[in-house]
Amino acid sequence: MNEAQNRIVFEDVSKFYGDVLGVNRVNLSVPPGITSLVGPNGSGKTTLMNLMTGLVQPTRGRISILGIAPDDPERLFRVVGYCTQFDSFPRGMTGYQFIYSYLRLFGYAHAQSSELAMRAIERVSLTDAAGRKIAGYSKGMRQRIKLAQAICHNPSVLVLDEPLNGLDPLIRAETIALFRALAAEGLHLIISSHVLHEVDVISDQVILLSNGYVVAEGEIKGVRDEIEDHPMQVLIRCDKPGELASQIFHNDYVVEARIHKDRQGVLVKTRDADRFYLLLNKIAQNGIEIESVAPADDDVLSVYEYLIGTEESTK
């Protein structure tokens, strides 16, 4: 098989919504496996996914999904499934009808559509709710029925926009296991998230987006190295800055920890915001009241944001 036939390729792709930048000058070549698209709100994750699936068209550049152009839905969606960020559904349908009617659009007959629908619903553990109206589903169930729709026709490329949003820990673990199983079957999985921690353990590679630009790309290890090259400064507001500083400064990835001038916070320089964030979580459970965590350095604002995410972006 030709290399391009098994990759998702972006060649110098830009998308502008009028004057608003969606993504700019994106060059990518994504192999099979799990690829995470990470970036803060508005960084262009959804735009990139919509471009892949032809829901929006590039202002410039070329896109090819396993050799298929996104403006050829008839071929594209035989191999691509897309779980969008939209939390809306056709009116009045049950979970089963939703998947079933989608499959009928493929041209599948009743029996096959019905069988594929039930299988997909089972894979997302919604069998019991299949006969109920989607309007009565919880957020997590709606998320999963969308996932079922994306996988029901056994695609080779799965595009999932924030698929873990709204899932409780148990279902989240189940869903991640499902992603792993699908990746093991040789699929391309493109998963977006605004928090790297959510997806880094399952990703084979990561694409970091910031303000419409791809700022880093590669295997997860490589991306970390890039980040470690430039330490970033973080300001933590808390009730016991002295205690916090003493708990963190001895870690090797913390370059510097000093009390802020106003004595109500700690300024930390770290090479690995990722691990630092985990540490902070642990400390927060040990009795230090942490009010806020924010980047103190404009240059690394974006880097920081996609690593840790800000409070409001954790929907």
Partner: peptide
């Protein structure tokens, strides 16, 4: 109608020519 309901994309995501 489907733009208002935000459900038109389901049609666009099926292997159906526009």
């Amino acid at each position: 109608g489907e733009v208002l309901d935000k459900s038109l994309h389901y049609y666009f995501l099926a292997p159906v020519r526009r």
